[in-house]
């Protein structure tokens, strides 16, 4: 399983919000420009914030250190997987 589908899925969702939604706002609205700006900035902030956390975990250099009781319960609860 690769992280690519997740990356594309979320990136395109934010892209939709940031690049398509602004055009869907009715032209009659007096605050159209303002709403568009807000939506674009919001999409960028949301995407960037998600991306940072996503990329930070992409290639971990260290692994989590766990207490063996915690680990034992985790293995029981979440199950084993061999890759």
């Amino acid at each position: 399983m690769s992280g690519l589908p997740a990356f594309l899925g979320i990136t395109f969702s934010w892209l939709f919000i940031g690049a398509v939604v602004p055009f869907l706002i009715p032209k009659a609205n007096t605050n159209r420009g303002l709403i568009q700006t807000c939506v674009v900035i919001a999409a960028f902030c949301g995407w960037m914030f998600w991306l940072i956390v996503f990329l930070a975990q992409l290639n971990p250099l260290i692994g989590p250190e766990l207490n063996n009781h915690t680990l034992h319960i985790m293995i029981q609860q979440w199950g084993r997987r061999d890759g």
Partner: peptide, 15 residues
């Protein structure tokens, strides 16, 4: 205390 090793407990590019 057991530290998981990314080499044996994580596949890269699958966050």
């Amino acid at each position: 205390d057991i530290q998981l090793n990314p080499k044996t407990a994580f596949h890269n590019q699958t966050p």
